[in-house]
Amino acid sequence: MEPILEFDKVFFNYHSTSGETVALQNISLCIDKGEFVAIVGPSGCGKTTILSLISGILKPSSGKVLLNGETVSNPRSIGYMFQRDQLFSWRSILQNVKLGLEITKDKTQESKDYLNSLIDKYGLTDFKNKYPHELSGGMRQRVALIRTLVTKPNLLLLDEPFSALDYQTRQSVVDDVATIIKNENKTSILVTHDLEEAISMADTVVVLTKRPATIKKIFKIPFSKQGNPSQKKKNPNFTKLKNEIWKELNNNEEVH
């Protein structure tokens, strides 16, 4: 498989008037096309820094971040999902989903058809003319995902997109999002502090250490192709793997 994203010995330092903080230390990572990678680590370890490096908002202090073999300079062709859905309250659902095409001034029939097919396929037809405040939190996250898919991004960055949802809706939205991403065969990077979420969604789980973050260990999930997240959670190996990763995370707390 061809790598879509590559971290090559990346270091990153934060500068402030009170001094310099090393946030990332020697991160090397390769993500293949169509792969779903989850990044977990103690809070404040620099997970979001990694996402900012991928989108080109931050530049590495040393080392290289390559997207499709090229240095990233702006966040174009990357799809975002945030903790909050960030739908525009003054636009209807259809207008929200259309945003990307409006920006690229893409008026081709092909794009319109793709947009309509996404709307139909993922059950937004009845909500097209509603406004975001009329939808439930889970539905809004689904709209947010469809909105990013419309522009056909090479890479999806999911920055704790489920942590603002209540427990009940959360599992169904996780299933929903995972299914859509799998259907559309998108390369995705999920940043989360929720281990179960990471293991049940991803093909690969990357465990980071405390700041300065280094890669502690990379786990391949053997049952990643077996159903949706809810089903995977019932896999006999799920708990075993979870304990193993949990140990890695805690182990790292003891060291510091």
């Binding site: 966040p75 062709s77 945030f82 525009f88 690229t104």
Partner: peptide
């Protein structure tokens, strides 16, 4: 919201589009 601006930029928006949209 900074995330909304980032979202616009990730869709390739220029500063005019960020301002008006």
């Amino acid at each position: 919201d900074k995330e909304k601006i980032l979202l616009m930029r990730s869709m390739g928006a220029n500063k005019f589009q960020i301002l008006f949209k």
